[in-house]
Simulated assay, not measured.
Amino acid sequence: MSRAMSRKVLALAAAAVVVVVLGLLGLWRWGPLGHDEVVPSCGDVADALPEVMAGSWTLTRAEPKREVDRSRVRCEFDFTSADQAYRGRILLSLIESDDEAFLRRTATTGPCEGEAVPNSSAPRYEVARSCARRINDKIFASVLLASDRRYAYILADFSSPGRPIEQVIAYANLSAQHITDQAMTLDATD
């Protein structure tokens, strides 16, 4: 075999190896062998919320479109408790990633509205922050959680005319924490 011929054979063999390696990488990353970071959709969250808090839940906003990004979601809900005593609006953001440092940093530096409040679920997470603030007759409760795979942020505002403000504060904090816990463990259905 001539020298020119052996170079051609070697070049073809190298090209075939590159194609096979790239194909396997593609299958691993984007195909059936891949593990995409997928958070539950706003619809998944909406379906699970009545288990956390009985009442009327209305999804008012969902971003981004599911076809664009399945590793992040931002949802807004209006809420009225089953006994009509509490009304609220809940903003929820979820991120799924294998970058644990990014998730921790996001939960550590994100906005926590008001004064820190205890979070009974804190031992289950890498980072857990809960805060509350009163503005007029509304209580704003925020929760930021990070695990090794997921980050969740909730900003919830609740009001209840006629109820003692301490009761509304307790309801807002507990509700926000339960909603966030549910979002951290919920699986995507799509």
Rank of each mutant, 00 (worst) to 15 (best):
A183E: 02
G55R: 02
E96K: 11
D83P: 03
S130C: 11
R124Q: 15
V39W: 01
R129V: 00
D78L: 12
F158N: 07
S175Q: 08
R163F: 05
A11P: 02
I169W: 11
G31E: 11
R163Y: 04
V68P: 03
V73S: 04
D98R: 15
V19L: 15
D47W: 02
A146Y: 00
R66A: 11
T60P: 05
A128V: 01
L12H: 09
Y86N: 06
S120D: 15
S81E: 08
E63C: 04
L186N: 00
K65E: 14
Y151T: 06
I90K: 08
D99Q: 13
D148F: 03
V39A: 00
S81Y: 09
D187L: 09
C42N: 01
F79H: 01
R105I: 04
A172I: 05
R61L: 14
T185R: 15
D148Y: 05
D148P: 04
S81H: 11
L59T: 15
V68R: 14
S93C: 04
Q182L: 04
L144H: 04
P111E: 15
S6A: 10
G88D: 12
D148L: 05
D83R: 06
K138I: 08
P161I: 07
F140C: 00
W28Q: 12
M5I: 14
R3S: 13
E67K: 12
R29N: 14
T108I: 07
I169G: 10
